[in-house]
Each structure stands twice: as C-alpha cells, then as structure tokens.
Design a protein around this nucleic acid. Sequence first.
DNA 1: GATCCTCGAGTTCC
DNA 2: CTCGAGGATC
Length: 693
Amino acid sequence: MSAPRQSRERAEQLRRQIEHHNHCYYVLDAPEIEDAQYDRLLRELESLERDYPALATPDSPTRRVGGAPLAQFSAVRHRLPMLSLGNAFSEGDVVAFDRRVREAAGATEVAYSAEPKFDGLAISLRYEDGAFVQGATRGDGATGEDVSANLRTVRAIPMRLRAALRGSFEVRGEVLMYRTDFAALNERQRAAGEKVFANPRNAAAGSLRQLDPRVTARRALRFCAYGVGFTGDARLPRTQVQLLDRLAELGLPVARERRLVRGVAGLLAYYRELAESRPGLPFDIDGAVYKVNDFDLQEQLGFVARAPRFALAHKFPAQEAVTEILDITVQVGRTGALTPAARLAPVFVGGVTVASATLHNEDEIRRKDLWRGDRVVVRRAGDVIPEVVRVDKPGPRRAADRFRMPACCPVCGSPVVRLEGEAVARCTGGFACAAQRKEALLHFAQRRAMDIEGLGEKLVDQLVERAMVDSPADLYRLTIEDLQSLERMAQKSSRNLLDAIAASRGRPLGRFIFALGIPGVGEEVAKVLARHFGTVEAFLEADWGALAERKLELARENAARKRRGQRLEARIMEGIGPELSDSLAKFLGAAHNREVIQALAAAARPADDASAVAKGALGGKVFVITGTLPALTRDQARELIERHGGRVTGSVSSNTDFVVAGTEPGSKLDRAREIGVRILDEDGLRELLGQAR
DNA sequence: GATCCTCGAGTTCC
DNA sequence: CTCGAGGATC
C-alpha cells in the first residue's frame, strides 16, 4: 500500500527539518533547537517510515542509526590518490618551504590558505548527483576501506549536498571526535567494563572501523572537510580559500579556524595564534596546514613523490615525557641486524603509554650517551614511533649499566660482526639463526609478499621451535595433523591456515621475489626484476655481469644522445645499480640459494609476470618490421613480438608504436622518422622484451 | 663530487 | 615514521 499524500509530505518535511538542524548543529555550530526536540522529530520520522516503508529514502536521516553489521570492509580504490603532506617542525622549515614556492612562482609574496591540522582520520566521501553514496578511509593513499555504513551515522556528513551537482563529486576531510565526547565515551566504556581509548584519535579510529554501524552511531563522530578529490565537471573556485567557502555552502562542515594569509610572516603568525588557541579548541589538532591558495600555482608546483610541493604540515612540537631506562635489550631482525631497544618504565606520552623505544644502533646510543638506569626524555616522533630524545638525569651508571653490543648473537650464539662503514651489527648465523628463520618466514607470509593470512608471530614461533618449518618451502608441506598439534590450533584454525597457505600459490612473480627476502630487494626492486625477467627460471639464469655491462653501455649511449639533443633510450631495470647487481649476483650465484628458490617456486608456483611475458612491456603495442635483422628472420621476429603480446602490421601509421629496423630498410623507416615513431634495432627490441642476449 | 630522491629495513601501539 | 644508503642527475 502506498503512503497517503499527507504522510509523504510530512516525511519529506521532517527530513528537511532534521537535516537543517544537523546543519545548524554540526556545520554552523549554532543549534536552533534543544536536543529533546530534535529527538522528537527523528522519532516521528522513524515511526512514519515504519508505517510506510516506501517513505524510507536511502538518504533519510533515520538511516543514521546504523544498518546491519558487515562481515568485513571492502576495498575502495581512490579515483585520485589521497596524498600525505610534507612536514615542518621548525620555523626554518617553513621559511624554506615559502622560499621554494616563491622561486617557482616568481613572486615576492605568495598567498596561502592556513588551516588547523586535525588529529583524526582522513577520509574521502563520494557524492553522486549530490547524494552521498560512499565513503572510504585513506588506507595507503591509493586504496582504502569502504566505511560508508559507518559514515552514514556521522551527522556532520550531509547525505545530500545543498546544490544539484551532477555526476561524481568527492570530498576529502577528517573524521574526528570532540574531547568532551571522548571523555563521555570513555566514561561509558569504563562503566560497561569495556576497554577505554587512549585518546580521541584512537576512539575515532576505533569507532570508524566498527563492523557494526549501530555501534558507530552511538559514538558522536564529527567530520570536517578540507578539500576535494575527483570532482568531474563541477564548476569550482580556483583558490583553496574560496573552495572551502564553497564546501561550506554545499552543507559541509569546514574549519572555522581557516584563514587567508600572506607570505611567510603570515604563516608563522597564524601558527602562533593557533598554538595559543589550541587548548581552548573542542578537538585535538597537531599543527597547521598551509596550502598555496591559487590552484594554478599549485598545479605549476606539482608533486614530489607522494607529497604535493604546494602544501605543508607545520607540526606542533611533540609532547615529551620523562621516564627511566629499565634495560637495553637486543633484537635480531630478518637480515640478522642486531637492534638495541630501550625498555622503559611505562609512561603516557602523546596519547599512548610507551614501554619501549628503538635505539637503532650502537652509535646512536653512544651519541646520546644512554645508560641503563638513566632518566630520559621520551617523545613520539611524528606522533607514532617513540623516541628517546636525550638523558634527563644520569642514573647510578655502574659498569654493568653501560650498553655493549654482544659479541655473540643472543638467539643462536653465532659471532656478531659489524662491517667497516656500516652502522649495524649483524648476526652471522644466517639460516642457522632461529630469529632470522622466524623473521624470514614472517616476511614471506606478510601481506605485501605472499599474503598468508593468519600466519603470525605466535604461530611462526611454534613452527620454528618445533622444527616443523625451516624455510618457506616447508609451509607448503604442512598437514592438518601437523597444525593441530600446536597450541590454540584446533580443527577450524588449522583448516583456515592450510587454506590460506594454499591460496598463496600463484601470487604474482614480483611478490614472490619480494617474499624471498633478498637483502636490498624490497617491493619496488622486486617488481622491477619481475617485469624484466618474467619467470622464475629467467630470474635464476640471469647473467648479471652481462647486464651490468649493458647498463653501462646504455648509460654512455644515453649521455651521448643527450649531448646531441636526441631522445633518450629506455633504460634497463631502472633503480638497480652496481651495488644491487653485485648483491643479487652473489645471492643467486650460490647454488644453495638457487636450489632453495627452485624448490620454493615449485611449491608456491608464482605466476609469470604478465607485463614481461603475456602482454609484454608490449601489451597491445603495434610493431612494423623493415629490413633484415641480424639474428632473426622476419617470421621469428614476428613470433617473438606476438608471444610478448605485441602486434605486427605491414605499414607505418600514427597507430604504430615501434618500427624495428634492420639493414637495408625500406621506405617504412623514412615514414617512421617522418611521423616520429620510435625506431628500434634488434637489440632494442630484445631490451624491450626484457631479454638478455 | 655534490645533491636530491627513492627505496629498504626496522619499529611501536592498538 | 624515520634513518641510512643506493641510485639518478647535474
């Protein structure tokens, strides 16, 4: 039965009123009615929607009480990456930032938008045709988690923008919790015997990551917008200050403390004022954010790595606390590195209780002159990693209190060496060291490597200690009986782990190479290697000496071409220089290592790298062959290109990507020069295919 | 040879 | 997140 007109109109009216009051409360910070009145409106709407479910629109404020719990969050790829900002910790850093901007702008004074830096969680909201459809956490900047259901419960986030914006419109901002709401929440948690949060930021993070949105709905989260992501063809202002005003007009909460300032003097004055007003603000901030106001200038400045050159986060000095070094212990890492860590008397600093801090290496300890029993100043560097800043007051300093790097590995007893010119001391036990075997396994299983879910520290400890697993290859031989003999591993957990191990078969070659844990080979280098070689076999058979030579040749060639103003040739394995080549050659030169990798590859069966083999560096690229090639017949060349995913055609056009030219080329070569198509010789082709000769 | 940038490695707490 | 070192560039 459809709802009577009267009810329909009333529901619509209520929705408008409620959103209006949300706006007054959360955006304008100027409520017009009492909370009780607001609740009455909401309850009336709820009851109407109960009677006539057809009235319950997807953007209804009643939805804000939270829907059904989720099993897990799904991943959301950000249409535009969510970047992080460069940090400034001193006025000098800010002066340098302003100087770089002015130099690039060719101006004597630049206008900036200055805003508070909220201590919350960055999120991205997507509106379609003005209606909220999805919200995601920042994640790693490229991919975040879909927390839409939780964000719907955040009343400061409008479900509908106050303008008919067609298409996609992404808003970027921060989810946070007011200090008073945080205190009240902890009060409730304590009363209910549940865990209390260390600070508002953690409370906000914990609330946003709830799988049950009804819990989030009770958590009084706020939101503040500070920018946009993908905005389609929405017509927007061309300065940051005006953009923020526009976001406010659209019904989004925007920091009141935002301001347009001029020059470095303006930035620093803003910073000081903000620092002064900080204690009186209802929420935590950890600094100021400066953005070049003019978007054209922003674009001109561009990006360095993952951070924009046109913006800066000016952090407040980290909070410091004083505590005592109870002991200095040593940990053994995957590469055998012995890392000293200070065990501290627990101390509350920067929102959490810190009990230990890394001391990096021996030199660092000497530089800071740290002894067991010293009273030291501790802070959380960059708000995360605890750091021992300096000695506050020396302890008794008996001879035994001085730190000495052990001569033998505390885990396996092998000799410890510190190579000339290196900062770290290493255990020489290698594979014989249980600590290194454990770390190697954890590295192998970690998410960015083979991603074996559930294989964590506790489990690896047991597997290694009981000698059930020595190397990663052994993982693939585990049986359910093996696993069930372990602590806390009954039928179900064992099954899950076996499934997870099985699921790690067929991972991309790049991950596999990364998972091997070869010194100096991280995620990026592993990817480069995978793209270059395509298969485990090719990787194992590589002739590193020849490669190094070709790299040198190519570098010389490129230098020569550059002098002549010609286009540079593609490079071979960018990012892999002499050091890495040597280290790889040595590692893969050892028969033992090659055998282990072969056995592991047979068990884990990594997938050949598509960009080198199937699609090729050539994925769909169009080739034309002309002239006689030194080693290949035309048919062989065609076959080679096609096997790597390229196409070979007969005539040169604007669609042609490469012309492969041999001796006595025809008119096709002239035509290629004319249109500016890239020309390769046979060697160039092989390079493209990632093949050594 | 100097300088800037990127990547790897180690790390803390919830 | 930070530090150090390798790699690229001028």
